[in-house]
Design a protein around this nucleic acid. Structure first.
Lengths: 142, 142
DNA sequence: TACACTCTTCAAGTGCCCTTGATGTCAAGA
DNA sequence: TCTTGACATCAAGGGCACTTGAAGAGTGTA
């Protein structure tokens, strides 16, 4: 369980899980859905090196930024046949960038509304005109 | 189906759904989970007024900003017994505000990384050190 | 060696947010 | 009047991202 316990043959799934701060079941799940390459085995047990830890960190990081596992897989491996990898990647990244900008705007608007709401003295959200004025300024999309 | 078709007795669920741009099934679901008050009925059919449309817009809006339906319900009705409504609301709003700030930071970081990645010439995300450097600057939480 | 612990697979369960399907009723228009 | 479409309820299904449970096998330490 010590942080640096890396035997010659690599880390166990439990050690990796501990490093990254996720459950072993999640790691197996990522492998199952093709997000994490199947590692080497010793007596049937998975053995990982540091690249797996890095990759899992990237996955966590991307997830927290709002990427789905499908999107992350696309960004890792999603290179359509006949397309130049870099171009494909850039197209995906560009699209996601726009989505994140949109998401960021919505969060911004919600923050404004919440801040206003905290300052105003309404008893319930429904009585509060702040929400509705916020709505007018940036109506829901979709 | 015309936008202004509001008979004296109110709008049907289909009309409301059309106004807000969601499915009728979603509206029934919101009612079921207590997010939308049961409207009046005419011959067993739901009849809504404009406040329902407004409320649904707020729900959509809040959802898009990352609120779960449970949180939205809390913000609408979540006033614990014995607590002053406003205080309870403000506490919820404050907590959510912090979450949104955190979320905003993560999105920002991911945007930076994507922009860097678009500029850099790596063939796959894995070869790209941009991700890993981004990781070092703002490691995954949790 | 004994025993606790960690690992393995596989199937099923969970929580969220709805959608779909079955079956039946009601309303508006040709 | 007849037909079409929208509505009603209720149960089940679906996608996502996992977790949990069962049953068995390998590992490490006293």
């Amino acid at each position: 369980m010590v942080a640096e316990k890396v035997r010659e043959s690599g880390m166990t799934i439990g050690e990796v899980a501990y490093q990254v701060g996720i459950a072993t079941s999640a790691i197996r799940y990522y492998e199952e859905i093709g997000l994490l390459p199947p590692p080497a085995r010793v007596n049937g047990r998975r053995r990982y090196d540091w690249s797996a830890v890095q990759r899992l960190c990237v996955i966590e990081y991307a997830q927290q930024a709002g990427f789905t596992l499908g999107e992350i897989r696309e960004l890792f491996f999603g290179f359509a046949v006949g397309t130049h990898p870099t171009e494909r990647w850039k197209a995906l990244a560009q699209r996601k960038l726009q989505e994140l900008e949109e998401q960021s705007r919505r969060i911004q608007a919600a923050q404004d509304v919440l801040r206003e709401g905290i300052r105003c003295g309404c008893l319930t959200m429904e009585q509060c005109t702040v929400w509705l004025s916020g709505l007018e300024q940036s109506p829901p999309v979709r």
